[in-house]
Amino acid sequence: MQEWLHFIDRWFWLGMGAIGFAILFNVPKRTIFTIFLLGAFGGSLKFIVLAAGGGIILGSFFGAVLVGFASLFAAHYRHTPPFVLAIPAVIPMVPGAFAYRAMLGVIHLTEKIDHETFLKLMEETIDNGLKAFFVLAALSLGVSAPMLIFRRESAKNLAVRIKPDEAKLK
């Protein structure tokens, strides 16, 4: 029972984080609840993958793919571009702690320390920096890949006017 309460608590706060970024980006009001659901379910899938033994990079990728696909379908019902829904929903999955530790490690590497401590600190800094980089890459690939795949099929229906309508010019 305790695990379910923790899961629901985490689900709620992931959704609230997504709403916070949605408000910050000034998205339309009609999309707020959808962004809450996308952020909550995408972040929850990330933590489910982590609990199942997958790494943070794989979990972030699957969470972002879920957000990417779901935002494609939700965009039609909310009459808004998919990225308006997907980007605020995926930002709470950004690895701020790893990036912070990497930058803090770089700062500590400039101090006068012995060789053994320097090597250990360098290893931790590189590890945190690479984790942050690959999680960000997984998030961006996971969100954009579904949109790129399906956009190619639907681009045929778009009518793009290259020249202005001559009837309006006369």
Rank of each mutant, 00 (worst) to 15 (best):
S60I: 04
E116S: 11
F118Y: 15
G15A: 13
I91Q: 01
A40S: 11
G20F: 12
A70M: 15
V67R: 03
A102L: 07
D114P: 13
Y77I: 10
A64V: 03
L119V: 13
G129C: 11
M16G: 10
S71W: 02
I32L: 10
P95I: 07
G15W: 03
A99N: 12
T80P: 06
S71G: 11
L119T: 09
G15E: 02
I126K: 09
G63Q: 02
A22Y: 00
F36R: 03
Y100P: 01
A51P: 05
A52T: 15
G63C: 09
E111A: 15
G53H: 09
P28Y: 08
P28T: 12
F21I: 01
A40G: 07
A18W: 00
G39W: 00
A102K: 03
F61L: 14
P28A: 12
A22L: 04
D114S: 08
V90N: 01
Y100I: 05
G55Q: 10
A102H: 08
E111R: 09
F36N: 01
G129R: 07
L130C: 08
T110M: 07
S60H: 03
G59Q: 02
F98S: 07
M122Q: 15
I91W: 03
G63N: 05
F21M: 02
P92Q: 06
I19S: 04
E116A: 13
I32E: 00
F36P: 01
I32R: 05
M122W: 13
A51H: 11
T31W: 06
E124R: 13
S44R: 04
L37K: 02
S71E: 04
R101K: 14
A18M: 06
I126Q: 08
A89R: 00
G17T: 04
V84F: 05
G43R: 04
R78Q: 13
L58P: 02
N128P: 11
L121A: 14
G15R: 02
I87V: 10
F62P: 04
F36M: 09
I126C: 13
D127L: 15
I56Y: 13
L119C: 14
G20D: 06
L104M: 10
F98Q: 07
M16P: 01
G53T: 04
E116C: 15
I91M: 01
I107D: 13
F33C: 08
I126A: 12
V49R: 10
R78N: 08
L121I: 09
I57R: 05
A70C: 12
E123M: 08
A52Y: 12
A99I: 14
A89W: 01
P92I: 01
F73T: 10
G43I: 02
T31Y: 08
A52P: 10
F98N: 05
F118M: 07
A75V: 03
P81E: 12
A75F: 03
R30C: 15
L24V: 07
P92F: 02
F33L: 15
F25W: 05
V67C: 05
G68Q: 11
L45H: 06
A102V: 10
F47D: 11
V27N: 01
L130D: 07
N26D: 13
A22K: 00
M16N: 11
V27Y: 02
R30S: 13
F61K: 00
I56F: 12
F41K: 06
K29D: 13
A74S: 11
F98Y: 07
D127V: 12
G59M: 00
L50C: 15
K120S: 15
G105T: 04
V90D: 00
I56K: 06
H108T: 04
I87K: 00
L66M: 14
E116R: 14
G129T: 08
N128S: 14
